[in-house]
């Protein structure tokens, strides 16, 4: 009954994302030439994809569960600044900074989750609040402590190798982190009961709670995951570039949401897949970087991304209704 057929592939949530990815890669191959798929070309978009991708998966899971987190935009610089101030400005060991970075992620994620669960305020508004609050906190503390908004950090070789290094001169080590966490997410979301719980929550929260799913706890955990992931990416960037800026990160809010939606997650919740989000992230990164390989003016890339987003949403609706109307043929 589980034979692989073209039809069954089209009914999967990642079908649209996969086709989109293939289309975009083909487009830039035609207009940008083969350089785009040479090792240095691949690195250019894989680096972008990895940084977005680590955050896109937990944000996508929140969207599947019917929530949204935009506070990631200030969690990235928060992660960068914490590690830079603690281990660059002061001389705390890096491992201690890492604990504080992730701990801060837990705290902010918990606040987001707690407020969303215990007030009826939509998560967009709650995380908009924490987005600004955290941004202000980081800016204020940075200026207070260091007197500037940009702090440099020189990490020991071991930490550089693990979190922030160019492999072969071009590939960021965070790509490996991205692959690793993706594997873990795929396992937990699609092969264990916890994934089922998240989908059920996005489908109908009330029924899910009546079925005995700890919806409150699960929502808070998802918010903690996305906040920690964003802080982690920020930390890696600081270690990679040997410095941290207060202002980096706001563009990630849109980039992450675009990646997730292009990846086939339905905005109303309940439908999507981790693999789809990965495809969506790659698609976004390819469009974002591919323009540099063509003779087009780079200003056109936003237009392509915008059109792509709309096309993706329409396509997702089509694929979802195909999935819904599917019935096995009578033999």
């Amino acid at each position: 009954m589980s034979r692989l057929s073209i039809g069954s592939l089209f009914r999967r949530p990642e079908a649209g994302a996969f086709l989109g990815m293939v289309a975009v890669i083909a487009f830039f191959l035609i207009f940008g030439g083969i350089n785009f798929l040479k090792p240095s070309g691949i690195a250019s978009w894989l680096n972008v994809a990895a940084n977005i991708g680590i955050i896109a998966i937990p944000v996508g899971l929140l969207m599947i569960a019917g929530e949204l987190d935009i506070s990631i935009g200030s969690m990235i610089p928060a992660g960068s600044m914490i590690v830079a101030i603690m281990s660059g400005h002061y001389d705390f060991p890096i491992w201690m900074s890492i604990i504080v970075v992730l701990g801060f992620g837990v705290v902010v994620g918990f606040i987001n989750g707690f407020l969303v669960v215990h007030t009826a305020v939509p998560s967009l508004i709650v995380t908009l609040g924490t987005l600004f609050a955290v941004a202000g906190l980081v800016l204020g503390l940075s200026v207070l402590i260091t007197g500037t908004t940009s702090v440099s950090i020189k990490a020991p070789d071991f930490y550089k190798a693990v979190f922030g290094q160019f492999i072969g001169g071009t590939y960021q080590v965070i790509i490996l982190w991205w692959f690793a966490v993706t594997a873990v997410y795929i396992f937990y979301i699609h092969y264990t009961k916890y994934g089922n719980w998240i989908f059920a929550m996005g489908g109908d929260r009330e029924s899910a709670r009546n079925a005995g799913i700890p919806t409150t706890k699960l929502t808070i955990i998802l918010f903690i995951l996305s906040a920690c992931s964003a802080a982690f990416v920020g930390m890696c960037q600081a270690l990679l570039f040997n410095s941290a800026q207060v202002s980096a990160g706001m563009s990630y809010i849109f980039n992450v949401i675009i990646s997730v939606v292009v990846g086939g997650v339905v905005l109303t919740g309940g439908f999507g897949s981790v693999v789809g989000i990965v495809f969506g992230t790659i698609t976004f990164a390819v469009v974002n970087q591919g323009i540099y390989f063509t003779s087009f003016d780079r200003n056109w890339s936003s237009l392509i991304i915008g059109v792509m987003l709309l096309a993706a949403v329409l396509m997702n609706n089509t694929f979802r209704s195909m999935a819904l109307s599917y019935a096995p043929k009578k033999k």
Binding site: F199, G202, G203, D204, S207, A208, V266, G270, A323, L324
Partner: peptide, 9 residues
């Protein structure tokens, strides 16, 4: 009335 189920599961 509507089964209390999850349409997309």
């Amino acid at each position: 009335q509507f089964g209390g189920t999850f349409p997309l599961m």
